[in-house]
Design a protein around this nucleic acid. Sequence first.
RNA 1: CGGGGUGUAGCUCAGUAUGGUUAGAGUACCUGGUUUGGGACCAGGGGGCCGAAGGUUCGAGUCCUUUCACCCCGACCA
Length: 567
Amino acid sequence: MRRSKAFIPTSKEAPSDASLASHIFLARAGFISQSAAGLYNYMPLAKRVIKKIEAIVNEEMTKVGAQEVELSFVTPAELWQKSGRIEKFGKELLRFHDRKDNMFVLGPTHEEMMVELIRNRVTSYKNLPLNLYQIKTKFRDEARPRFGLMRGREFIMKDGYSFHSSQEDLDREFDLMEAAYKRILSRLGLDYRVVEADSGAIGGSGSKELMVIADSGEDTIAVCSSCEYGANIEAAISGEKKVIPDAPQAEFNKFQTPDIKSIDDLAAFFKIDPYYTVKCVAKKLIYETESEVVLFFLRGCDNLQEVKAVNAADALEIEDVSEEELKALGLVPGFIGILDQDKAKHVIDLNLKDAKHMVCGANELDYHYVGADLSVISDVAYFADISEVNAGDSCPHCDGELSFTKGIEVGHIFKLGTTYSKALKAEYLDENGKAQPFMMGTYGMGISRLVASVIEQHHDENGCIWTKATAPYMVNIMVSNIKDEAQMAAGEKLYKELQDQNVEVMLDDRKERFGFKMKDAELIGFPYTVIIGKELVNGNVQVYERTTTEKTAVSADEIFSYVMDII
RNA sequence: CGGGGUGUAGCUCAGUAUGGUUAGAGUACCUGGUUUGGGACCAGGGGGCCGAAGGUUCGAGUCCUUUCACCCCGACCA
């Protein structure tokens, strides 16, 4: 491509609202342009990058036997009513009516459509397993799209669905897909981590997220310093505490603690470690048709993990609750106790199971119990893991230590089980001729989000730095002064030679000055720029490498073979 | 969905408190010339229903009402 004819509208100014590097540089370098909230146009450079990523995904999917299909973007609302997700998705589903007044929704994901596609077409265990996928635009009418391609309303996703006759076979496919996803991210040149994820209200027997490591990521993940363990903070667990503070020695007793309401005050008052205090976090849990105040008890040193709390209470949502609401229930804020708690439903963190030497609220103003032994309620209370891991906690699988990092969720693989096949009555006949719902897995990967992720991880103050696998053009030939006939001829010659070898090459033949064209090349982020300029009279050109920003002198006679070697 | 903010040239923004020439700058774009190794310079030029609709006024980018869009913080996010 000749730069003079290419549609690449670069700009010195970034959109006023852009804050992420990927948003700023993709906009400035002429990859994307916004058309409305969360909607972006892909210009030629972006389109090329997307095609490269899609090609790699397609190759890896083909390797593991997945078959590509393409389902309609406009989907009948009826399917979403059958699965119940028309309510669950709510306003995120963009709905509209056709001329016959039938309702449709723009597909936000395609579980229902895919199940419907194979229903009554795949009818025997002999045809299983089956793995179908597509790469397709999705639409979710998000309340707050932001960060450019990172969180758009319209985005490109690879979504795959597998069908099985047993849990074992689903487990096998799940591992296969995890390996394939890892290969894809490695080939793209990304630093990533596979982490345990919250499986959410949808149930299923497990899910993992593929996180690209980046400070700008919206997810917090806990990773082990020495083994492969990693988990979204919503699902992370820690191992046994290695150092346990000395226990306070006290007989069980009620103790006056005037105006001591916080854990810090309590620990200071008794001169004990917060580990030996019981914290109560009251929340309002929202269910389908009702809501209820639920008390969550944890060790004073731990914090409530709200996603775990919602799961433990089997609720849909969690909200804060006011002191007035607590008092209305007969609770005493600041002194809510774990023993003889009959005012509200409560969940106790597993870290408190059989805990001894504890200080806890006495359900009475200005009084706490000391020396409490919680083993007395071990058999009657409801225990669950509801605490958030802390940086420095020990790893649940090895001797390592957990630390936090930020990640961009670019993939999510999920063991769905039979949720959708049951809801949509999709069944096959097993060896005994008995109808069974399909066991399903679902595997998503955000293609347009990957484009942004590459730049989040690979950029500098001057612009994009594309990895070799993702670069829209591998080589940029920059003719410093197009009026210099020798320079121009050398540029044209190399351009043709590289094109003949199917190298993706750009020839910057614009009537611009050296500095302008270099800045432009850096902004766009070609891996290599061949500079044909003033050194040509001495028989030399230079190769500028974007990752290192170093220039290497190369003989003009050898430049073609030199380029073929490094790319 | 709650709270806040902004709409003026392709882009980034002045101008609006106190209404009053022909609505501005930088950048980008077109012409000509000079320049040619890190986003050049000179000269000339094109480009605006000041988000939209109503209203007040002799007169509205500026004041009032309504509305739409976009953005930010939060909630939400298979």
